[in-house]
Simulated assay, not measured.
Amino acid sequence: MHGVRCGYCNQQDTLSAREQPNYFHLFWIPLFKIGTSRYAECSHCKRVYSKEEFPTEMKKALSKT
């Protein structure tokens, strides 16, 4: 995310937003998608922010994309 600082290590432009699909499994076989998890990770300190932890600066940057 351009122009956003990590709240933990204070580095700018190191956060990347990710989406991970969640599937229902039956005996380790994914059958169908039941949802999606969103998170951001800092490439410098490896801190992971869940969607609920996003500060307003991150939310604004994500809404622009």
Rank of each mutant, 00 (worst) to 15 (best):
residue 35 G to T: 08
residue 17 A to D: 06
residue 33 K to Q: 05
residue 48 V to W: 06
residue 20 Q to T: 11
residue 60 K to G: 03
residue 17 A to H: 13
residue 7 G to K: 03
residue 8 Y to N: 15
residue 28 W to S: 05
residue 46 K to E: 10
residue 14 T to W: 09
residue 61 A to R: 03
residue 61 A to D: 09
residue 21 P to F: 01
residue 65 T to A: 14
residue 40 A to Y: 10
residue 51 K to R: 01
residue 45 C to V: 07
residue 55 P to M: 05
residue 35 G to K: 02
residue 9 C to H: 11
residue 38 R to P: 07
residue 43 S to T: 15
residue 29 I to D: 08
residue 19 E to M: 15
residue 18 R to Q: 02
residue 6 C to P: 07
residue 50 S to Q: 10
residue 45 C to P: 06
residue 29 I to V: 11
residue 40 A to N: 05
residue 2 H to V: 00
residue 61 A to N: 06
residue 62 L to Q: 00
residue 41 E to G: 04
residue 24 F to Y: 03
residue 44 H to F: 14
residue 6 C to E: 09
residue 4 V to L: 10
residue 3 G to I: 10
residue 46 K to P: 07
residue 10 N to Y: 12
residue 18 R to V: 15
residue 43 S to G: 12
residue 33 K to L: 02
residue 30 P to V: 06
residue 60 K to D: 13
residue 26 L to K: 11
residue 26 L to N: 04
residue 12 Q to A: 02
residue 7 G to W: 10
residue 39 Y to A: 02
residue 60 K to C: 06
residue 49 Y to R: 04
residue 39 Y to S: 11
residue 52 E to D: 06
residue 14 T to H: 15
residue 31 L to S: 02
residue 36 T to E: 10
residue 18 R to L: 15
residue 23 Y to R: 13
residue 40 A to H: 12
residue 23 Y to Q: 08
residue 8 Y to Q: 13
residue 64 K to H: 11
residue 31 L to N: 04
residue 3 G to C: 11
residue 55 P to D: 05
residue 16 S to W: 09
residue 24 F to P: 00
residue 29 I to P: 08
residue 44 H to M: 10
residue 34 I to N: 05
residue 23 Y to C: 05
residue 38 R to Y: 03
residue 26 L to H: 10
residue 25 H to F: 02
residue 28 W to Q: 01
residue 63 S to N: 05
residue 47 R to I: 14
residue 14 T to P: 02
residue 45 C to L: 01
residue 20 Q to Y: 03
residue 59 K to E: 12
residue 28 W to P: 00
residue 13 D to G: 01
residue 18 R to Y: 10
residue 18 R to K: 11
residue 12 Q to I: 12
residue 25 H to S: 10
residue 7 G to C: 08
residue 58 M to K: 03
residue 32 F to H: 02
residue 10 N to V: 11
residue 20 Q to M: 12
residue 34 I to A: 00
residue 22 N to M: 13
